[in-house]
Design a protein around this nucleic acid. Structure first.
Lengths: 207, 207
DNA sequence: CACGCAAAGTGGTCAGACCACCCTTAACTT
DNA sequence: AAGTTAAGGGTGGTCTGACCACTTTGCGTG
């Protein structure tokens, strides 16, 4: 053969890369419109079916939204579909569940630490209000609590990682911690004792 | 109109449901073969392209594997592939370099802690050998060192997350730490003083 | 000016064609 | 007879073109 060719990556995977580049290059944000399937096919020198395979996959992952007769749009990342599909296929995860739980706790701990410096009095107040909000279930409260924390990390990547793990863990029990945990964490923030965050998680995690 | 019709669900989403039913009904397990695309199209009364859109989505989610010329197979569930795709989109921002660096250090720290219990004398020996291997660049040494550690975490998810971050950070400088760091870490393992891992990273990270 | 309907643009779906790849099998060579 | 090679059938990979359904646009008619 003459040309070794770039790795035998499938076309639709290259398309994924290209679309990512396109979004980056044009600085598209959630809500913005992508070129039409036909135009993408023309631009990327690929068949429309290949384009569609890539788009469907992205849609399933919640990265884009598609509106019949209108077009394809960047969506605010919501992996709800992903979670649903996955959980409908995986009834009983084996070692995956354990890994996920451990990893999630780790991320939560580090988010709590990263957020430490950024938290204001107002944040603390909001978080305390959350803890006494009786309209939420324990699970919802946990999610709301750490969502607030994750946002305050000032680290988008950590925030996204936590978000992703939280979405994936909805099907599992034991996501939340004992009530006293949250109270103690807020207390640590108030007392300004950074070093105790690590200990707090150690105490409540290794049960 | 006469028939309300099933909701305006797209064909490829119905296909997804049908395939799930098929797997369930035939009790297919990882490694088993799915019917060919053409047969599925025939059975489910759909076009082959619709079948493929569903299959590609499943493939991206890590639910199936396709082998050119052979067929489509149920795969052992690995959500980590999903994380990979998502990450490539999540990481496309600009301010993410700093985030990535911080996050990577965090993951490395936690990998070091998770691996603590699993490390054997032999592992320590190998790691020490790495540190004196002059055939590698500093960066390569860092990667090799933490690859070893990540594998030993006994947590596939953490392992994959670190791997991903490492791959993404190749384009960036300052991925490695000072030489003495690695030596001290191995020393901590030898001296069996778990608690000092946190301090070690604290010391070398907050520069 | 207001209304409505046709046209254009877009996603949704299908059918068929061709290629590349893998495996089996039959034919051929040694 | 045993080993090697060539051919065929099945499968995924991709492209093209066609048609439908939906939305928006805008032109023309009243």
């Amino acid at each position: 053969m003459a040309v070794p060719m770039s790795p035998k990556q499938k076309v639709y995977q290259e398309i994924l890369q290209e679309i990512r580049k396109f979004i980056d290059h044009h600085d598209l944000k959630p809500g913005d419109k992508l070129p039409s399937e036909r135009e993408l096919a023309d631009r990327l020198q690929a068949g429309r079916s290949s384009i569609r395979e890539a788009l469907r996959a992205m849609e399933l992952l919640g990265l884009i939204e598609t509106k019949h007769g209108e077009g394809t749009f960047i969506s605010t990342y919501r992996p709800y579909q992903t979670v649903e599909i996955l959980s409908s296929f995986i009834l009983q995860g084996n070692g995956t569940k354990k890994d996920l739980l451990i990893s999630k706790r780790i991320i939560e701990k580090e988010c709590a630490k990263l957020a430490y410096k950024q938290l204001t009095e107002d944040d603390l107040q909001k978080m305390e209000n959350l803890l006494t909000d009786s309209k939420m279930s324990d699970t919802e409260r946990h999610t709301a609590f750490f969502t607030h924390l994750a946002v305050k990390t000032d680290n988008l990547l950590m925030q996204r990682i936590w978000q992703l793990m939280d979405e994936f863990s909805v099907t599992m029990p034991e996501q939340k911690l004992v009530d006293s945990f949250y109270v103690e964490l807020v207390d640590i923030y108030k007392r300004n004792v950074y070093m105790e965050i690590e200990n707090l998680f150690e105490k409540y995690t290794c049960s």
